[in-house]
Each structure stands twice: as C-alpha cells, then as structure tokens.
Design a protein around this nucleic acid. Structure first.
Length: 505
RNA sequence: GCUCCCAUCGUCUAGCCCGGUCAGGACGCCAGGUUUUCAUCCUGGUAACAGGGGUUCGAAUCCCCUUGGGAGUACCA
C-alpha cells in the first residue's frame, strides 16, 4: 500500500444524501486522512432525467457540516477537473470507441420498447430477460448485423447504445478488502450498456474511466455495488488498466422489519435519515435533518462511524481526529447494521454534557429569544449547569429551566393533591419570614436556614420542601431547590410563594 | 427465479483469521442505592453464538448442508 492513496466519494445528485451515503463518505475520508491520502468529491450526474435542483449543493453542505472536506472537488477544483461528469461528457465517447475497436464492446440498436417487450414476455413465463451471451446472438446489434448494415444505421442517425461484450466461459476473480475473494462465472453476467443513446455514458463506463483518470487507488462504496464488481473488473481488463482496490461496505438497514434503510423510513419512524433538513423541490415535502433536530455534528459522525466499524476496544466516544487515528478497513464488519435511533440520542447526550455551560447557554439563547425572553448570559449558563446532565439536546433545555425565567403558569393537580395539606399555606407563609432574613441569599445559606427552621418546628422535610417546590416550579421536578432560589433571587422567591398560596386554594 | 453477499443478547458489536476464558462492552429495559421532587449518577440484573451434520480430546471460532436476511438483476446511480 505504498502508492499514493486517492479515494473518492461519488454521489449522484438525484436527491438528498442519506445517512448511509454520509457514512460511505466518512469512511472514505477517514481512510484518506489516516494514510495521508487525497479525498475527492466527484458528482456522477450522467442521468439527465434524474436531475434534482439543489441536490448537489445539499450534498456539499451536508458533508461540510459533518466536517468531511475534500482536497479535490467541484468546489475547490484540482488537477483532474472538472469533477462533474456531465462536464466531462466529451471524454467518455473515445473510451467507448476504444472498446469497440478492441472488440470488447459492440453497437446495439434495440429500442427501449423492444427490450421492454422482451422483458414482459420473459416475466410472463417467470423468467428474466437478460442481454447476455445467449440472447445477444438474436438481437439487433453489430455482432449479428453486417458491417455495412451497421455503418448505414449509424450514418442514418439510428439511435444506438454501446454494450460491453461479456467474455464467454470465464471466471471473474475479484478481491475485496472487506469480503475477501469473490468469484463469478461470466455466463451469469449481462452485456451492460456502457454508452447511452443520448450520448452520455452510463455509470459503469464513466465510473471506471474517471477512477482510472483520477488515479483512484481504493474504491470504498456501498455493498449495493458488489453485483457490478465483475463488470468493473472486466472493464479494467479490457482497457488494460490496473484496477484499484475495492472495499464494499455493509448496508444500513431499517430499524424495524426488513430491507435497507430508505428515505421514507425516517419520517415514518420519527427520526431523521438525512444530515440536513431537505425540502423536495417538486413536491415541497419536507424531510427532517440531524442538524435541525439538534444533533451536534461530532455526535452524528461518531455514531455513524460505529455503524459497521469499531476500534476493537471499549472506547465509544471518538472525535474526528481520533477516528482518523483508529480507523481501518480491516475492522469494518461484513453484515448490515440495523439503524438504532435510540442510541443516537445517547451519543448526543455525551457530547452535550462535555460542552461548557457557556457554550450551551449560547446555543440556548435563540430559543429564549423566540419566547421573548432576554436573559443574561451568566444567568443562563448557571441554569444550564444545573440541568445539563439530564439533557440529550439543547432544545430540551426550556422544559428543564422555564422556572428560572418565569413563575409557574399552573400547578400540577397531582402534586397539589399529594403535597398540599390544610396546614401547608400557613407553613409556607411562615417560611417567607425565614427566607426574608437569610443573607447572603445563596444555596448553602438557604439550605441551612430552612433546615434549622424545619427542625425547630418539627416539620417534615419532605412535606415542606415538596410544597415549596410546587410553589416555585409548579410541578414535582427540577434541580435542587436551594440552587433554584439562589438563582432566581429572594424577591422572586417570596413573590412566587405568596402568589402560589393565593392561587392554590 | 437467477447471481452474489451476510448470520453472536431486542439493537450496535468484541471474540472468529491463529479452535481451549462463567461468550465481554455499549444502547435499551428491569431492580436496588443516593436524593426534599423529577432527572442525573452509582451498583446489580435481564438477554445471544439461527438449525443440522461433520473435523477434533475440545468448535461461537475450521468444513458442508439447511434455514433466514440482504443486495443486484434498467439506455438509474
């Protein structure tokens, strides 16, 4: 593995990139960085009919958010520009011609309709029609037609495609870094179209040509490509090129039931499958994103890295640098992973509690502003420090801290029933006198003052504190009461107690 | 259907290559503890080698079959 490591992520801009795609990009990135190699982004937009406006930008933005950056790409350019296949269109025909000249490919004039009919017929007999060593002898192509005939058809502008000529009776031996040796008989392969009648190459041709031209050393891609690996290997052979090494990554599967994770699963199951929110430009449908759901990119990357790979140690929290250090294709598993949305929350929690109070406060400010609350940064940071352990996401902060910013709007009926006794109002009133005299009004002093008063009067700790909590918070939750009172201040504390006594009757 | 890939707790997985630990960790779940509440936290528990054959003194680990799952089977990528 001494030659230059050059890997590429080659998405098709037919829609938003889902988490499986992001993981593929991530593994490529980690591999490149680990080995001091080059990371390339190539846009495979050879299918003009599937162009989706905004998809390419979405892909670029998503990867940028994840911290996956490229050395060569559509945006930053590079020695092999352009990096968008539609802009390399002129290039591919000569390679297609080369293959025809060397006898590795041929012209086919069968129309899409004709082939469709053949497939329908085959299907009716529970068979599958394939354009292969057998059937190609009976179809309209340059293998059967005379040279003059073929020339005439082409001169007349008859639409044609170029198909790869699968060799007969050979075994295609392949090597995959993750799967080891794979062997396929050539008869089971079909003569794939390499060059379409619209003048564009198919994925197979463009992909091999570009990987070769861009000097890609390792092709790291999803397992859905494994079935076309024989074709690709044969193509390299036909061109007389050295093939790169291959690594086919296991798929990400649906959390429930069967099948690979798809765009629809996210909103059906209530978790995002996309890194960023995406609005379909045609239907206007919105799909949620990890970023908008409150995930940190570090957490997102961490959890994605662990879907199919692990370091072999018990450490689970890795930042990007650590991932780069530890990553290896040898430790990527072979079997597909069911995506577990539950664990993603735990990852985010881990990153959240490691953030400073000030950082969390800053992230929370917009949420407060939305509620019309302009709070002091230090105050918010202090509130965050008291509750951050219980959060998975910053957006949950309001539910845990609202009582720092406003007095209760209502009082939980269940708690009133349980904690509000006949003697409670007078006790609470007496407590205001006690609190009034506590100086300084900080948590230790408040705690000590209340405790002394409770013991002197032989009250129950639970009875007093739970009732007090009801008045201050409105419910039976929240951090230590002394901390709450100290933070909201004496005046607010006394006000809430009095207001509560009036309201609960 | 055909071709190829895969198979350890509910989930992500370690262990497998180079057979020999009560099959380990994490998420979740359950219980107990801490606590003035709710959480957090701590401790403990639950739970797996798909099945069947071999090979071997010994198999999660090597081989075969079955079953199950996945992918592909387009002038899409």
């Amino acid at each position: 593995m001494n030659k230059n490591i050059r890997v590429r992520f080659a998405p098709s801009p037919t829609g938003p990139l889902h988490i499986g795609g992001v993981r593929t990009a991530l593994y490529n990135y980690l591999f490149a960085r680990k080995h001091g190699g080059t990371m390339i982004l190539r846009i495979e937009d050879t299918d003009q009919t599937r162009f989706v406006p905004g998809a390419e930008d979405y892909i670029v933005n998503s990867l940028a958010w994840c911290g996956i950056n490229f050395d060569e790409s559509v945006g930053v350019g590079g020695p092999h520009a352009p990096y968008r296949q539609s802009e390399r269109k002129a290039l591919y025909k000569q390679y297609s011609d080369k293959l025809i000249a060397s006898g590795h490919a041929y012209y086919a004039f069968d129309t899409a309709e004709e082939l469709e009919t053949l497939r329908k017929h085959a299907e009716a007999e529970k068979q599958t029609f394939t354009y292969n060593t057998e059937t190609r002898k009976t179809l309209r192509n340059s293998l059967c037609l005379s040279a003059e005939n073929v020339n005439e058809l082409i001169e007349n502008g008859t639409p044609y495609v170029v198909r790869f000529l699968i060799p007969e009776n050979t075994e295609v031996a392949m090597d995959d870094i993750i799967r080891g040796k794979v062997c396929v008989k050539s008869e089971t392969l079909d003569d794939k179209v390499l060059f379409k009648s619209d003048g564009m190459p198919t994925y197979h041709l463009a992909n091999i040509v570009d990987d070769h031209l861009m000097e890609i050393s390792h092709v790291i891609r999803g397992e859905e490509w494994l079935p076309s690996l024989p074709l690709h290997v044969l193509l390299y052979e036909a061109f007389g090129w050295e093939a790169p090494e291959f690594a086919h990554l296991p798929l990400l599967l649906k959390p429930d039931g069967n099948g690979k994770l798809s765009k629809r699963d996210g909103d059906r199951l209530g978790f995002p499958v996309f890194p960023l929110e995406w609005t379909d430009p045609f239907s206007g449908d919105k799909s949620s994103g990890y970023r908008e759901s409150g995930y940190y990119p570090e957490a997102f990357i961490n959890l994605l890295a662990f879907l199919g790979w692990n370091p072999g140690t018990e450490q689970e929290l890795f930042n990007m640098d650590q991932l780069i250090q530890s990553f290896s294709l040898e430790r990527v598993g072979k079997s597909g992973s069911k995506f577990d949305p539950e664990k993603t929350k735990w990852f985010n929690h881990q990153y959240l509690i490691r953030r400073s109070d000030e950082e969390i406060a800053a992230e929370f400010m917009p949420f407060l502003l939305e509620k019309g609350i302009e709070a002091d940064m230090q105050f918010v940071a202090r509130a965050a420090s008291l509750v951050k352990e219980r959060l998975n996401f910053v957006k949950e902060l309001w539910g845990e801290t609202y009582f720092f910013f406003q007095s209760p709007e209502s009082y939980d009926d269940q708690v009133i029933k349980k904690r509000w006794k006949d003697e409670t109002p007078s006790q609470m009133l007496a407590l205001t006198e006690v609190l009034q005299n506590i100086e300084p009004f900080d948590a230790p002093s408040i705690d000590a003052g209340i405790k002394t008063w409770i013991e002197a009067n032989n009250f129950g700790m639970g009875a007093i504190m739970n009732a007090l909590r009801l008045l201050l918070v409105g419910a039976s939750k929240g951090p230590h009461l002394g901390d709450i009172m100290a933070l909201i201040g004496k005046e607010e504390t006394l006000m809430r107690i009095k207001k509560g006594i009036e309201t609960i009757k």
